[in-house]
Every structure is written in structure tokens, then in C-alpha cells.
């Protein structure tokens, strides 16, 4: 089945190092996206016409453009057009954050808009001040709405890091390809074994996050 290739030399270790590269890029992008997205989502909820106009265009661009095109524009485009020399990793984090902030902001905006005005009023009527109302009533409800949706976004971001090999980053999928190429003669069936392990590695990276989401959803069922 071609699993033997993995035991040759330090192939398995190399795959794990590739996974580390992918996870580093996604982790950094996820952190930036969560922070930036929450901030932008709150700003958008203030309903300033100019800000929201710009935001809508931004969101549409992110949704319409394939991530790969964005990667090419930022990595190859800026280097040539603006003379900025970005590392491939930096370009990847920029593109993934650009995407993540837009999507995250939309989730926050949606969650905020979904809280009925009367929930604020009921809090104030009980004597809670604005900060207390947000802390004990509004934010906990927003978190409950946000968790499944943001976990979905995070796993999507991790999976999509497989695209960064197209701008020359040697992440887990690229390492897999290299191993297959290098062992074409000795292990012609290597592809199945190697890609199966790559699949498993992605699964191991995303599964705990999904489980966390399931756990929180169950805990907050009410």
C-alpha cells in the first residue's frame, strides 16, 4: 500500500515538520482573524454608512476571490508592482488574515444583530448598567452563537493552508509530494500511503477543535 516509504529515513519526521509549518501559518492567521474580526464586527454593528459600505465591498471581494488568486496577488503581485519583498509565510498570513477577519466580522455582526433589543432593556430594567448588561447577558449569548460558526471557519482556514505550497512554502502536502517523487523508483505505490498519512495529519489537527465545539454546544444546549 506504500506505507513503507514513511519509515524510510526521516520521512515521517519531515511530514510532521511540514504539518508544523501549516499549523504555524494557520494559528497566526486565526489569532489575527479572531481579534481583528471581533473588533471589525463591533465597528460594523455601529452602522456607520461609510464604514459599512467599504466593509461590504471587502466582504464581497473575500467571498468571490479564490484564496489562491489572493495568494498570487499578494506574493507575486506586490513584489513586482510595489517592490515590497514579502516572504511567502508573511504573504500567506496576510491573505489568510484578510479572509478570516472579513468572515469573522460577519459572524460577530450577525450574532450581535440577532440579540433582541428587549434583552438589553430587560437587563437595564433590572438595574444592570451597560457594562454589566454586556458582561452577563449579551456577550455570553453572542459567544454561544459564535462558537460553532467560528470553529467551522478555523478548520476551513487550517485546511486551506494546503494552498500555500503554490507560492513555494514547503508544508505538509508539499513534503508528501517530495517524498513520493524521491521514492518513485523504490516505492511506486508511495502516493497512497503518503497521502493517507497527510489526510490523517489534517484530521488530527482539526478533529480536537471540532470536538471542542461539540462539547461547548452540548454544554450550552440550553
Amino acid at each position: 500500500m506504500g506505507f513503507d516509504v514513511l519509515l524510510k529515513g526521516n520521512n515521517l519526521l519531515r511530514l510532521l515538520q511540514g504539518l508544523e509549518v501549516a499549523l504555524k501559518i494557520s494559528l497566526l492567521s486565526v489569532v489575527i482573524s479572531l481579534a481583528g474580526g471581533v473588533l471589525l464586527g463591533v465597528v460594523v454593528s455601529l452602522k456607520n454608512n461609510v464604514v459599512n459600505g467599504v466593509y461590504r465591498v471587502y466582504l464581497e471581494i473575500v467571498r468571490i476571490m479564490p484564496q489562491l488568486v489572493l495568494l498570487f496577488i499578494v506574493y507575486f503581485g506586490t513584489t513586482k508592482a510595489m517592490g515590497i519583498n514579502l516572504s511567502a509565510e508573511a504573504a500567506s498570513v496576510i491573505v489568510f488574515s484578510f479572509w478570516g477577519i472579513a468572515e469573522m466580522a460577519d459572524l460577530v455582526r450577525g450574532a450581535l444583530a440577532g440579540i433582541p433589543v428587549i434583552q438589553y432593556e430587560a437587563s437595564y430594567a433590572l438595574g444592570l448598567n451597560r457594562i454589566q448588561a454586556y458582561r452577563f447577558v449579551i456577550v455570553p449569548q453572542i459567544l454561544r452563537r459564535m462558537v460553532p460558526l467560528s470553529i467551522n471557519l478555523i478548520t476551513r482556514m487550517i485546511k486551506t493552508t494546503s494552498l500555500v505550497m503554490m507560492i513555494g512554502i514547503v508544508e505538509v502536502l508539499k513534503v508528501g509530494q517530495q517524498i513520493i517523487e524521491a521514492n518513485r523508483k523504490t516505492s511506486p505505490n508511495g502516493a497512497f500511503g503518503v497521502f493517507a498519512v497527510v489526510f490523517l495529519l489534517y484530521f488530527l489537527a482539526c478533529w480536537p477543535i471540532s470536538m471542542l465545539s461539540k462539547y461547548l454546544e452540548k454544554k450550552w444546549e440550553n
Partner: peptide
Amino acid sequence: FQSYDLFPHLSILQNIVLAPVRVQ
């Protein structure tokens, strides 16, 4: 209020004691 407006993420008891404990 007309529409009760309990806090959906809190249990009945938590709904009732929230303001007395946090505000008072």
C-alpha cells in the same frame, strides 16, 4: 414586559438572582 424576556442562556434560578447578586 409583555414578552417575559428571560435570559435564554441562564437557568431559571440564575435568571432570578443575577441582578440581586451583581447589582445589589
